[in-house]
């Protein structure tokens, strides 16, 4: 098969300034599972997108005058590249525990495209949220800082709680069929329910140990 159906921002189709700088689908390490997953860089790696797929049995597509057997629907949703960089910072802290230039930290033989993360300007400018920084000459050195990271992640959780509320996502704790989605929020949902739900979502993007620490935090 050489055709898939994807929903993504229009801007991803913009032509790059230089050939070879266009949007790029690539496999990177999922920070929670440690396994490879598909991501998408916009041209010049300005923005990182996570690729998720809606997958249900017994679907196919009509695309124009063709049938596409693969009935999946892919989504490209923007995500903070710092989550992926964080994985390597934590690993470096465990293995070496010293200040290092970030281009020596974000190195992954199994996923060579991980170095492209260093081109994500916004993420690079946000490293100080999760690290201690030292500048020697013109070079910067970084070391993972757990306390700062937890503070940063808490902000993410708070933002997620706001988004859950404004989008009326059901976060109630009742047991029900996985395919049953309530259309109305249950009346007895608490702030803790929202926080736990948001924590769960953020945990999809951080290593397990950090997720446990975040929950306590």
């Amino acid at each position: 098969p050489d055709q898939w159906v994807l929903i993504a921002r229009d801007s991803l189709l913009d032509l790059p300034k230089k050939p070879g700088d266009g949007a790029l689908f690539t496999r990177l390490r999922n920070p929670s599972t440690g396994e490879g997953a598909l991501f998408l860089f916009s041209s010049c790696a300005q923005q990182l997108f996570e690729i998720k797929v809606f997958k249900e049995d017994y679907h196919s597509w009509f695309v124009g005058q063709t049938v596409q057997h693969d009935g999946r629907l892919f989504f490209a949703t923007p995500m903070d590249a710092l989550f992926l960089i964080l994985y390597y910072l934590i690993k470096a802290e465990k293995e070496q525990g010293k200040f290092q230039p970030v281009d020596q930290v974000v190195v992954d033989e199994a996923f060579p495209s991980s170095c492209i993360l260093l081109q994500c300007t916004r993420a690079m400018q946000s490293l100080h949220h999760v690290t201690e920084e030292k500048e020697i000459g013109s070079k910067k050195f970084y070391k993972y800082n757990k306390e700062k990271t937890l503070k940063w992640l808490k902000k993410k959780v708070v933002q997620t709680v706001k988004a859950l509320k404004s989008n009326n996502i059901c976060v109630g704790g009742s047991v029900h069929s996985a395919t049953f989605i309530r259309s109305k929020q249950m009346l007895d949902v608490t702030e803790e329910d929202y926080t736990r739900y948001a924590h769960g979502l953020i945990s999809e993007y951080v290593p397990e140990e950090l997720s446990a620490d975040l929950l306590k935090y």
């Binding site: 999922n30 598909l38 998720k52 797929v53 809606f54 996985a178 769960g200 999809e204």
Partner: peptide, 17 residues
Amino acid sequence: QPHRFFQERKLETVKDL
């Protein structure tokens, strides 16, 4: 196990196309 948000909506991470 993916978060319930994804399970309920049948959304999965993509390992390969």
